[in-house]
């Protein structure tokens, strides 16, 4: 069931659009912000609230890579694997993250602290290589700076 907070936020967004269903992507993001990811029950709840079929909503949810249909860790790392970062050392950043966290791309650490995901160009190519942790962008990465910044997430 959608919480009162979720319902309130969804309705506030819904007033922006020319159709009721248009708010569905915002609605999925709102649910995800409160719960970490979007499970099957929540797909059904949002679909019912917006007058869509659950399958229709799921086809939208699974299109967008920033809607998580599987559990994610407390913090989500988006590491840029596009061309400028690749030239400037994406490979070693990825390998370092994998060994520090003990997981592959697409996985979550056993303690639920981090999910590691590859990302399309993050639009900070003059400061490559870059990644985001949750809402924060980190640039000009090397092993040392990665150690420091990971330590600040619990």
């Amino acid at each position: 069931m959608l919480s009162d907070h979720e319902l309130k936020e969804i309705e506030a967004e819904a007033s922006k659009y020319g159709s009721r269903a248009a708010v569905c992507i915002d609605a999925l993001k709102i649910v995800q912000r409160f719960r970490g990811w979007v499970d099957d029950d929540m797909v059904r709840a949002v679909a019912q609230h917006l007058g869509m079929s659950p399958d229709e909503l799921d086809s939208v949810a699974t299109f967008y890579n920033l809607i998580f249909r599987r559990p994610a860790g407390r913090h989500v790392i988006l590491v840029c694997d596009s061309v400028s970062c690749w030239i400037m050392g994406y490979g070693s950043v990825r390998d370092y993250l994998r060994s520090r966290l003990g997981i592959a791309l697409g996985e979550t650490t056993a303690d639920g602290r981090f999910t590691l995901l590859p990302s399309a160009c993050l639009g900070a190519c003059d400061r490559a290589p870059v990644m985001m942790v949750d809402e924060q962008l980190y640039t000009n990465l090397d092993a040392e700076s990665i150690d420091d910044l990971l330590a600040s997430y619990t």
Binding site: A22, V23, Y64, N65
Partner: peptide, 23 residues
């Protein structure tokens, strides 16, 4: 505010995304 995928930048994909559809 979008939810990812490069194809959303293509102008008609973008309009579908705005309508809450697959882009």
């Amino acid at each position: 505010v979008s939810a990812g995928r490069y194809i959303c930048g293509e102008e008609t994909g973008l309009l579908n995304a705005l309508e809450g559809r697959r882009a």
